[in-house]
Every structure is written in C-alpha cells, then in structure tokens.
Design a protein around this nucleic acid. Sequence first.
DNA 1: AAGCCTTCCAACCGCGTCATG
DNA 2: ACATGACGCGGTTGGAAGGCT
Length: 148
Amino acid sequence: MGEADEDEVLLNHVDKYGSRDWSSIRPKGLLQRTGKSCRLHWVNKFRPNLKNGCKFSPDEERVVIEMQAQFGNKWAKNASYLPGRTDNDVKNFWSSRQKRIARILHSSPPPSSKSKSKRNQNKVPCFHNVPPLEIIKEFVLYGFLIKV
DNA sequence: AAGCCTTCCAACCGCGTCATG
DNA sequence: ACATGACGCGGTTGGAAGGCT
C-alpha cells in the first residue's frame, strides 16, 4: 500500500470513527501501523487548520520563546497558543533554534542529542556561515531568554 | 561536478496518565 | 485496589533537500 493510500485509509477512518479511535485500525486490518503511529501521523499532517509547509513567522517565533520561558518544554501546551501548529512543529522549531544558538555561542550542542553525523563532531562552530542579521537576531532573542 | 554540511521534517521510542474491567 | 490497554507527550533519531566549498 502506498503512502497516499495509507493516508486515504486513515482519513476515511477518522471521518467514520473520529480522531480518538486509533487502536482499532490495525485489528481491523486497515493498516499495519500501530494506533499510536496513526494518531501521530494524523495529528501532524491532517488535523484541521494545520499550517503545513510554512515557516514560523516572527510573531510565532516570539510566542514560542515567550511560552517556552513561561512553561518550559511543555510543547503541547505551548503549541496551543499557536493556532495551526502542532507540538511536534514547536518542538522541532525550538530544537533547531537551540542548536543554532549553541553553535553561534561556540558552546557544544546539547549533550542529550546524539550527533547523527560523526563528521560534525570535530567541526568548530563559528560565525563564518551565519549572515550578520541572523547573528543579531539570535543574540537579541537569546538575550531575551536570559532576561526572562 | 562532487562531496560536505546544515536545516527541516516525519516518525519512532519510552514513559506517564487515564479509563475500564 | 489492582491490572491492563490506549492515548498523549516529550526526547530523540534518521532521511531528504538544499546550500556551500
């Protein structure tokens, strides 16, 4: 079954049974995926009013930063303040932003994130590849974070 | 043109919580 | 009260795509 077919089955199922009945999908033989996997896929791709494929606006970035400062890594909660964004979206956004800041500040990346490519391990972070405006922006945002 | 590097995104995994029997 | 199964969340990983050297 192709990916498009799987999506169609998933959408039909949600249409019929709603977005809370995930465990019955596999037993019914509709899909080989677990209910958990189906739910995640639906939430991240098909949930109504999703902003698919567009980058975070400056306003959205600001909200993420403010909410993260207020609630911490409560991505589902933080995402609830961003219409059309999922917890995964917010989490991914924050994670890549943290890596960028860590690189800019010459500090090592977060220890928990296992570097996926060994070739990056010896690379010294530097400003050379970062556009000046980006550096300023990140420092402004980082300064805001420290202050909060 | 080719290889390297970064970023973005989708998905998996483990754990906590909640509902049900 | 307890066991079990399902859902939801947060951390993490891996691949694709595009930019850079």
